[in-house]
Nucleic acid binder design. Sequence first.
RNA 1: CGCGGGGUAGAGCAGUUGGCAGCUCGCCAGGCCCAUAACCUGGAGGCCGUGGGUUCAAGUCCCACCCCCGCAACCA
Length: 536
Amino acid sequence: MSEKYYVTTPIYYINDKPHIGSTYTTVAADILARSHRLRGEKTFFLTGTDENSQKSVEAAAKADKELNVYLDEMAVIWENTWKKLGISFDDFIRTSQERHHKAVARFWQAVEKSGDIYKDTYERHYCVGCEDFKTDSELNEDDRCPLHPNKDLELVQEENWFFKASNYKDDILQLFHNSQNFVQPPKRLNEIRSYVKDGFADFSISREAKKVSCGIPVPGDDTQRIYVWFDALINYLSAIGYGTDDELFKKWWPADLHLVGKDIIKFHCALWPAMLMSAAKNDPLLQNEDGSPKLPKQIFAHGFFTIEGQKMSKSLGNVIDPLELAVEYPFDVVRYFFFREIGFGNDGDFNRLRIAERYQSDLANTLGNLLNRAINMSRKYFDGKVPNIPDPSSQILVPGTSWGGKEAVDTLWQQVEEYYASARIDLALEAIWNGENASLTLANRLVEETKPFKLIKEDPEKTALVLYTLLEFLRNVAWMIEPVMPEIAKQIITGLGQDPKSELSQHNFTQLKTWGGLKPGSDLPEPKILFPRLGE
RNA sequence: CGCGGGGUAGAGCAGUUGGCAGCUCGCCAGGCCCAUAACCUGGAGGCCGUGGGUUCAAGUCCCACCCCCGCAACCA
């Protein structure tokens, strides 16, 4: 009955510590994972590190460290950064781990058995920057890599193993056709479709061992090492038991969502499904009941952002360390900014002025102030308690107001859930703040429309109804924003005199979001300022 | 013919299947006084980059063009 949700981030190169960009990706995955967990779905959230790269070798050499030592140190830094930021990952895969090597070996053999691996000698241009081969048509007018024009292309001439990606070109195009949501957002689907159409050539998937100082050995061929991308993608399988724990694997595969940056869609949307299609032919674990390949359900490519209008760059010195940022602002505020300000899937700008603006306006003024005024009035007029209304679950409309009542809140919940489900985090937040029949803005308006501070003298019962509505709506909002702002959500719940932990453990999701959950007559603690105003 | 993103109110951005142009901030004028000088209402402010085309109807679809941004390294 309960559905499962398996979400991944890309695995990161660890030639430096995490920065704000990788943090953005990871937070996005965290939000989606949390939204599914909240719904009571069995959720598995994977992140990790890509360690079989030439870049790691270079970085280790630069740091004057043994490769293994360097990798171990950096992997810890990455994992700990995510922990400190409260990222709720369930596993942390390192491609240097034994389990990964086992999975890769099994996968390679399955692909080989399918007849999609062959040896060939060739001479081609290899761009170290891209870690990728370039065909002549991909070079710029100076015959250099358009992405890395200052880097000399290596003219590589060697015998390598190749993956017959071209065998799957039609299948991939068919996949795009059949499942329009496979790649999100749509503009990325267009991009990748034209890439596959124009030429989805066979990939070289190994390099000569003597030329690289890292990489997983090709099964049965010690002279070759597996090309980093071919092994990296398999991490999504190895972390959930492929090659080591069949039962676990069956539980989680296929992935429900691979979250990636827009720069690596080629690998995830074309190469990866092709690899899986091939391996599935000779590995029942990768097959559906009908023998078709089990492919990830969706790949979502997010955009990049600039820092204060400029490209993130070390030489400009504007690379932001997420841990330092988390000192400047509560990290929940940063999370909110990321997904309120920047349409998920679009490029955006990381701008401190805008963070401050969002903080002041959306968080302090609209949300924080509402919570504060609602609690204060309730405490003042109702003896420090949540107003004791007779039948909270059947709360009716307050006549003469634009507040949509409990049904509008149900509708809002529905919208928010749909947005989370389709990874439109930005729209979920927009709806909570500015929605049409129930929203934080409308809740503030309800106060103006009913004036509880006057109404209390004439009609205490109606006042109780209004205040209960506000408090109960805030409880609902807390759970709506919990995936994005888990700490803030807890503080709101606590501020309403409830215990977030027991709310979660004693109620299922359906009960949580059912109107009337806030117990009438329960104690309201003295309000704390959730978002102090900035400046003086 | 390198690749990609984008040009919508003063700033920053939304605009799914074409159907009266929206949101946040800022500005102006009111209201309110419970609240974090917060909240609410009203208003000013747009040739939706340009020129064509399709259509009863185009920010949205088609064609052409102009302009801006990113593309050594770091890097989602």
